[in-house]
Design a protein around this nucleic acid. Structure first.
Lengths: 200, 200
DNA sequence: TTAAAAAAATACCAAGTGGTATGTTTTTAA
DNA sequence: TTAAAAACATACCACTTGGTATTTTTTTAA
């Protein structure tokens, strides 16, 4: 295998295993040893590719977590079509399609936020970028909805955007506490009513 | 000092310092050593009063976290008066009155939820009890609002209750990412509009 | 083919972890 | 006053942590 290719591949393997272990067990409690055990490589390989665990954490956030949120929650907002319908499908379809694994472990971004956002400024910044991008996408969509007459002009796009995000992230955490989907379905009902009410 | 009194006092000192350190630095990364350093006592004293760090964690959740949420968010729901006004004052007044310290470190309950809820069933249960109590209080208040004709009968109490809680917990995490209150004020606007819309 | 550079393995370190065993001091009840 | 029990201190343990120094293997370019 080519050198550059091999290097990139190894970095990606470490990145993927890290994301999985951070998601399942948290960032701080996942050691470099455990990660490298999962990759079937050794510590020497890790510190050849990453200069510290902190650098790895930042890479996981900006490359894995950001991508995941973007693909699942942000990119769909820019599709063509009725704004309200896009809002509904993005939020409702996604939350309904989560496998048990994702329900159990919550939102990777939210886990990071609540575990290490107040811990170091670098993590704070990397996570903030994701929220800012999401927020911007939602505001743009709501504005679009107003322009195309599917959303009330009286609503504040900024307020709705952050209220949608907050509730979504909140429920991803709360769902962890339960062994069934009852609480999730109540949230879905709440979300449906909320979207319904901003319609024109 | 009396024996029983002294014992209880020591347990409480450990409990208070633990809560503070868990809140500021997380549960897993706060060691028993650090806690006892803060209390000016030693490890021997800790393991005389608590059989493990896990037992301490559960005590902090049920005695400190639960009490805090109860006093700040649940007890006010049962006061007499207009249901909508109580909803507004409870949520809005509380979030507006948070000191910087609380904004920086988020919600103690939410931190616990996202750090260790999927880690052990005992923690999950202890935290679930808090959410269940909060949820029940909100549902009762909303039902009361319907009865006294201040809240629309068409809204689902369960759905509104969990949507309010989710958004509140969500924003407590997200606020950690920012150095100012802009995002918080947008949330407040969103919350105000949300409450406005369930009024009769 | 070969020397250099890249990639990965091995061995190690000081500091920190939850927890235990045992000792010392303080309080209690007689 | 005294012996026992409660409260706390001290010293230690095996294990894990992030990180480094050094060696071995693999790939590259000449």
């Amino acid at each position: 295998m080519h050198q550059g290719q091999k290097s990139e591949l190894t970095k990606e393997i470490i990145l993927n295993k890290s994301f999985k272990l951070f998601y399942e067990n948290g960032f701080k409690t996942t050691s470099v040893d455990k990660i490298m055990e999962a990759t079937k490589l050794t510590k020497g390989a890790f510190y050849y590719h990453y200069k510290s665990k902190k650098e790895l954490g930042l890479a996981v956030i900006s490359l894995k977590v950001q991508r995941r949120v973007h693909e699942g929650m942000i990119a769909p907002l820019y599709k063509s079509g009725n704004a309200v319908e896009i809002l509904e499908s993005t939020f409702l379809d996604r939350i309904k399609s989560f496998p048990l694994y994702d329900k159990k472990h919550g939102c990777p971004m939210n886990n990071f936020i609540n575990e290490i956002a107040d811990y170091e400024a670098a993590y704070q910044l990397a996570l903030r970028k994701i929220i800012d991008e999401w927020r911007a996408g939602l505001i743009a969509l709501i504005e679009r909805g107003k322009a195309e007459n599917s959303i009330k002009e009286s609503v504040s796009s900024k307020a709705v955007a952050i209220y949608l995000i907050s509730a979504f992230e909140g429920i991803r955490g709360i769902r962890k506490l339960y062994d069934d989907d009852i609480i999730l379905e109540e949230y879905i009902a709440g979300l449906s009513n909320y979207i319904e009410q901003i319609k024109k």
